[in-house]
Nucleic acid binder design. Structure first.
Lengths: 157, 157
DNA sequence: GCCAGATACTTAACATGTTAAGTTTATGGA
DNA sequence: TCCATAAACTTAACATGTTAAGTATCTGGC
């Protein structure tokens, strides 16, 4: 009996077998390992994603950056002024098309990245050791497959 | 060469190989399938989690409910009055210990659940078909393992 | 019975998620 | 050239995430 009849009389997967729920739980479990470390460096989880994406790719416009770190452009519009005030990033209009705002990392932001990345990698390796590198690889593959399996608004099959 | 040297001169996994990031992407991809449906029923993603948890378990105190649906008690304190105003849940103090607030689902809330669950299961089945039920099961196992691998604040090994 | 310390929320404050509406800049066609 | 439309943000409004502080209730020891 894999599907449990609950008091509502309607069969539904138990809550623990909701894929979004388990993805959330897994992510939360992992982030609890990283948050104290980021917090100690004065970075929110989202700010770290922005910094990391910019270091990796150099510079990007808002929409691309949002896609890269899974943060809505509207949220970025609010976040970026703060990161800029702290001297971690820079913004300038694209000279070829004034509609675009090009965001880039500063030397200060890059230095911050170096420090955080080092510790972050250590935490990551500890987690990978616990799960096992084979299973981590398998998990990545299944997550990729899940992402591909969900038709995005942009790419309908 | 599995680890790429980026312009910062420090080796770090590429962003796409961040487990929290991929978990977020996968979850987002799935939720995009469900959100329009929930929205049409006047439910936020979080409200649906609360309703679903209550239908499954009957009634719970705030902290247990928060654990069940991964919503912080502070957020629940803000959300529950709304759900109560809409007649979907009820709250009452535990007669044995006034500190506890017992939350339960109403008949109206249960009826809402029935309707949403039906459509929700259809969407879920479509997703499972795309990924393949074998891989879905494997994914659940790996997520469980990931959750267990991250030491919680409450249970240090 | 009384009180210091726990417990279980609740509030408050600020950041982010999410959607809709508004603004500025480009583009393509009449 | 002019204008309707589109594109790329930006703002605004409201819900939720997150932490710290505050409030009401219990518990255990004296």
């Amino acid at each position: 009996m894999s599907v449990k009849k609950s008091t509502n009389g309607l069969a539904m997967r138990p809550f623990a077998r909701s894929l979004p729920m388990q993805l959330l739980r897994a992510r939360e479990a992992l982030m609890q390992q990283f948050r104290p470390h980021l917090r100690a460096r004065g970075l929110s989880e989202q700010q770290w994603r922005v910094v990391r994406a910019l270091v990796e790719t150099g510079s990007m416009e808002i929409n691309t950056l949002g896609e890269a770190c899974q943060i809505h452009p509207a949220s970025l519009s609010r976040m970026l002024p703060n990161l800029e005030k702290e001297g971690r990033i820079e913004r300038r209009a694209d000279p070829d098309d004034q509609r675009y705002t090009i965001v880039s990392i500063t030397a200060k932001g890059r230095a911050l990245f170096e420090r955080v990345a080092k510790e972050s990698e250590e935490i990551y390796r500890a987690i990978e050791r616990r799960i096992g590198s084979h299973d981590v690889k398998l998990l990545y593959d299944l997550l990729d497959k899940t992402i591909r399996a969900a038709p995005a608004a942009s790419s309908r099959e």
